[in-house]
């Protein structure tokens, strides 16, 4: 399998990982070759982790970390980690605050999905800037071999994983989600390291 398809599968795995866990994702995690394939596809090393939890304890872990029904639930939505808008004309007090929903990233993501024609069938968990949606879009771009667009997307819409890693670490140091998110972050950082901007891409100075 070519590298970009391996990376695509890696992203699709992660897209599943950040949804409430079910059999499919568990099957992947519990596979004996999981760690090897993961490290190969991402080109990074997984930090040592915990024992493999049972599916039911994985479900409980997901609920306590990410569910809005748990107190201090960690957000998986990009807008939450970024200033709400950079629109200088927005006459709202929270315009530049973090921690709000439907910020610029959501708006941009919604635009991209609509324009590309990636319709979401009604899904109660659908937020345009939910991490899983971003990952699915990134996977799609890899599949289409749209490397520049992929790089832009990943560098601009997944550049908040440091904060996500920190948030998980604060709640549970030995979480499987922590280790896996750290790895995703390393993978993503390869693309964000030079803080891609469109101008640079144009100048063909991609690093």
């Amino acid at each position: 399998m070519p590298d970009h398809m391996k990376q695509r599968d890696l992203l699709l795995f992660y897209a599943e990982l950040y949804k409430p866990p079910g059999d499919a994702v568990y099957e992947v995690i519990s596979h004996p070759d999981f760690r090897t394939e993961l490290e190969q596809a991402s080109g990074a090393a997984l930090n040592d982790c915990c024992d493999l939890p049972s599916l039911s304890s994985l479900k409980e872990e997901f609920r306590s970390l990410f569910s809005s029904s748990s107190q201090n639930g960690i957000s998986l939505i990009e807008s939450f980690y970024k200033p709400w808008t950079t629109d200088q004309t927005a006459a709202l007090p929270f315009a530049q605050s973090k921690g709000m929903m439907m910020g610029d990233p959501a708006w941009h993501m919604r635009y991209l999905l609509e324009e590309i024609g990636l319709n979401s069938s009604y899904d109660p968990m659908f937020y345009p800037d939910h991490i899983s949606v971003i990952l699915e879009l990134a996977a799609f771009l890899l599949e289409e071999q749209e490397t520049d667009k992929f790089t832009l997307l990943v560098s601009q819409h997944l550049n908040w994983l440091d904060d996500l890693v920190e948030a998980i670490r604060k709640q549970k140091k030995d979480s499987l989600y922590l280790k896996l998110t750290e790895l995703l972050n390393k993978f993503v950082n390869e693309f964000t390291i030079c803080n891609q901007s469109f101008d640079r891409l144009k100048e063909d100075s991609v690093c």
Binding site: A15, A24, I116, S120, S121, M125, F126, F198
Partner: peptide, 26 residues
């Protein structure tokens, strides 16, 4: 192997093309 078999994909890619969006808009 990494790609889970029965995925619950959020977005449906049936008639989609990334070419519809310019790099600038990305």
């Amino acid at each position: 192997m990494l790609k889970p078999v029965s995925r619950r994909s959020f977005i449906k890619a049936s008639a989609a093309t990334a070419a519809a969006v310019s790099l600038t808009s990305f």
